[in-house]
Nucleic acid binder design. Sequence first.
DNA 1: TATGAATGAGAGTTCATTCAT
DNA 2: AATGAATGAACTCTCATTCAT
Lengths: 223, 223, 223, 223
Amino acid sequence: MTAPTDRPASRPLRKDAVRNRALLIDAAREVFADRGLEASLDDIAHRAGLGVGTAYRHFANKHELAEAIFAEAIDRVIELAEHGAEAPDPWTGIVTFLEGTAEMQTADRGLREVLMGVHDPERMERVNDRLSPPMRRMIERGKQAGQIRPDVEVTDLGIVVLMLCTVADVTGDAAPDLWRRYLPMLLDGLRTGTDLPVPPVPEDVLRKAMDSHKRRLAKLSQR
Amino acid sequence: MTAPTDRPASRPLRKDAVRNRALLIDAAREVFADRGLEASLDDIAHRAGLGVGTAYRHFANKHELAEAIFAEAIDRVIELAEHGAEAPDPWTGIVTFLEGTAEMQTADRGLREVLMGVHDPERMERVNDRLSPPMRRMIERGKQAGQIRPDVEVTDLGIVVLMLCTVADVTGDAAPDLWRRYLPMLLDGLRTGTDLPVPPVPEDVLRKAMDSHKRRLAKLSQR
Amino acid sequence: MTAPTDRPASRPLRKDAVRNRALLIDAAREVFADRGLEASLDDIAHRAGLGVGTAYRHFANKHELAEAIFAEAIDRVIELAEHGAEAPDPWTGIVTFLEGTAEMQTADRGLREVLMGVHDPERMERVNDRLSPPMRRMIERGKQAGQIRPDVEVTDLGIVVLMLCTVADVTGDAAPDLWRRYLPMLLDGLRTGTDLPVPPVPEDVLRKAMDSHKRRLAKLSQR
Amino acid sequence: MTAPTDRPASRPLRKDAVRNRALLIDAAREVFADRGLEASLDDIAHRAGLGVGTAYRHFANKHELAEAIFAEAIDRVIELAEHGAEAPDPWTGIVTFLEGTAEMQTADRGLREVLMGVHDPERMERVNDRLSPPMRRMIERGKQAGQIRPDVEVTDLGIVVLMLCTVADVTGDAAPDLWRRYLPMLLDGLRTGTDLPVPPVPEDVLRKAMDSHKRRLAKLSQR
DNA sequence: TATGAATGAGAGTTCATTCAT
DNA sequence: AATGAATGAACTCTCATTCAT
């Protein structure tokens, strides 16, 4: 019997177990921040002052640990999207969403990697399932308000985030705010600008593409 | 070292070595393109029809092999930059450079990864030394022609490439041309657009940042 | 040890313990029957609705738990032997004993494995101490009645059971009754048949042999 | 690239590699003999004075190593069957086959385990494919000569071997010849004897049964 | 010089057993 | 007394790198 990750609400976990789970998550955050998702569970466990087995009691595998760490962050990203979709002014909503997302990812390399895909594809699918609707709404509302060009699609929003994410990923601590320099460029692209020569990716195609991208990267963290 | 400098008629050995080096690089390109930088040296050597040992005669490391590939590709990127810097119309030069670079990276996953940074920082340094001047010229000429906004810097060009590169990396075979959709956005950003709220990164800062980024990623290939 | 010997009205605790012991044995039987002796104690405990720790309160080892099961089953086997030894017709007694034993083992994979030796040798010793006398009596009576050839020994009976047991073990659910096909062969062997070219094993030799056999197999369950 | 087990005849393996392969096989034989098939590859490699990696260069996994060790022995068992099938007197052929097989298994615990099924089911399948025809011929010829009762089937022969094998497995070194005592019993069963109350297993059913038996046991050696 | 065999650290994972709650 | 969290050794397998042939 493994991976109690989603215990439906059964027994509320012993006090020391709670503490150790927290220790593990803290340690994982630190270690992942230091050395990225390729760090070994052994290292994480020992940084937490615990044995490997304990890590495996709490998380079925590395994947789940990473998930646990970033679940919360992902929740907040989704919240950001939902807020963005409900903002009084659609355009402001989009800008706020993109800024917020980029800010979060700037602050946390682990999160960046996770959102860029070094992760379990299936769980990612679910994340996308939650992220798509508000993003779609943002776009729709922007179009209706004449703020977004008609040929923009949901996937464009995702790609924009991705590009900003890359900037943050590369500049890292050295220039943590550089992405802000490119945000307006991309916003302009969404809003006006010259014609876009290539049509957007259909959403399912993008998902599949990202899946295989992730699957590849995932091997790294799985080992 | 046996009778080194001057082997009158028996240079064929040298030729063999050259051929093997080429075979290795080709094989590495193929294998990396297929399976990314996590492919094993064994696989690469065998794809080249050689033994692992031979690979190690030519390259001290998996690192160096990747570098070699990088080197060749970078040579072509630098050529592209130099052509771009000499184009009759500065703006066209820039566009052509960016398109060419992105095209190259689209075609080869390994190259993408390598250019995105899984690499030896020092060699990268030298690459930048060669890439900077033409890129700087492109920008300067563009500014003089009034085609590029005055606050754009060399580093911006690099970042733009990086962002396009990410698009290609994620969409992969599923939508190999999608990056073209975002190129105009970013070109617009370079040309006109709203103000850029954050100043560009000084070049040395970016270099350092990318260095550490690379160092982190490099661990993957080192294993 | 708190106020041990004499707890006047509060014996319920003791009752609980008895119940839990039974629960564990039942669960172990089921799980072992399903998945063999390689099942984990965790699984068994949970099937019993108890914690692992509780299992360890009752049984020092996975060993001992298996023993406990063995013990109960062996009790029944011994009963079978005793009945067989007292049957009005000696031959019928033997046949009934062999059939009954084989039937029991057919029904329960765990029991089969346990009786085939994955077990603590010392406890086994004691089992043999109890099993030998009735088996010996069966043989003696059979000989006196002229139903059993004179050179048959107690150990032969054990070996015959073992052979039938193997048949059941291998055919499993696919042909749970196949062993019945071979029982008459072996019965014939006990009764008449050509000369047996090799003398029977002295009982102590067989015991030692089985001991080491068991010791080897026991490692499997010890892990 | 792994498991050169069946290299078609490519390069003939380096001299030291041949030596090490032999060392590994010897070590495996010893270790398996000592501690059974559950011994770890690590242990075997070190007993051979080699690193684990070397073991994995020669054999894709534990299975293949065991196979390699017993491949030869299995070949000899099959030869025995083929000789048995061609003996001038059918009955003598059968007896010789059974005796020979039992003798071989008596001498080698590892072989016993392998033939009893602690092994890769698929390869076992192939063994059976080679063993069935001669065994079938033995039976057919025996029946035609009136030496074998008409309701005996190929599977019976296999089961008989199995039973003898068990005897040898349990008595081990203590009474290595005891199985000979039971061979005549079973031979009588094949030849005359009382009616067999249960029909023989169809061959495919037995195979499936043994497969699942093996699969279960295989887990032990696979870990 | 080229080869590929050998190495061994290291990764992920499991589970019998102990021990704090 | 019962629980289940913690432990860590053990196991299989991979791969960058070295070195004998």
